[in-house]
Amino acid sequence: MDVVGRYNVVVTGNEAGPVVLLAHGFGCDQNLWRLIVPQLAERYRVVLFDHVGSGRSDVSAWSAERYSSLDGYADDVLNICRELDLRDVVLVGHSVSAMIAVLAANREPERFAKLVLLTPSPCYVDDGDYRGGFSREDVDELLTALESNYLGWSAVMAPVIMDNPDRPELGAELTNSFCRTDPAIARVLARTTFLSDNRADLAKVTVPTLVVQCARDAIAPREVGQFVHDQVRGSELVTLDAVGHCPQLSAPDETAGAIVAFVSGR
């Protein structure tokens, strides 16, 4: 299968503008960008995709081995850039994809013009003096919460959800489909997301970087955003007056504004 099918790649917006590649985070799929895409699309060529195992990606391309480390996902991002021949890319990574973006940019810095790290955390688990905000037990508790909520996930319904997202008559069954993942895949992704430690990768970033955080975010608290800002040399930090982990939903105008100012500014 080609990259467009494998990652459900969607290209939209101003063809003449710079390329802005949006990488969604843990939990849902590219639909999470939908409130800011219109604003970005006026100026930029916007490229959206689903990580393998999420949304409408090709689930058969998923393997526990490849996707038990963020490197597998970073590989995919570079793969998309190569196959679509994207150059001078502005890579925007939300949540776990912020670290995926860091890994991809460190591997092929010449490919990327700028990085935007949206509510990033290089390490969710506390370690010595470092406060990620969570303990190993908390992560186990999350896995339990995932398990409880996927009892309703039905293997029988999955093909319907994957194949017919545009058929409104299936609306009732399709509710929640943006954040629906095969439980086995969700479990591995949760572990990969919350147990990875990419603190050492931050200092290796050479691409101009913007860190965007929310004033109140239970997943990526402000001291973690500050840590990322301190570690990435020359980075800018913007703190949005927003609550939660998904400012592209809770404060779309401010989020799009911060991205535009960074991409088009200077």
Binding site: L32, F134, D138, L142, A145, I219, G244, C246, S250
Partner: peptide, 24 residues
């Protein structure tokens, strides 16, 4: 619980914002 809070922030809140409702 803390694990539930992560689930809330990464699944519940975004879904509610996108759909306007969420059940079960």
């Amino acid at each position: 619980t803390v694990g539930g809070r992560i689930y809330y922030e990464t699944h519940f809140a975004p879904l509610l914002q996108m759909q306007g409702e969420l059940g079960g």
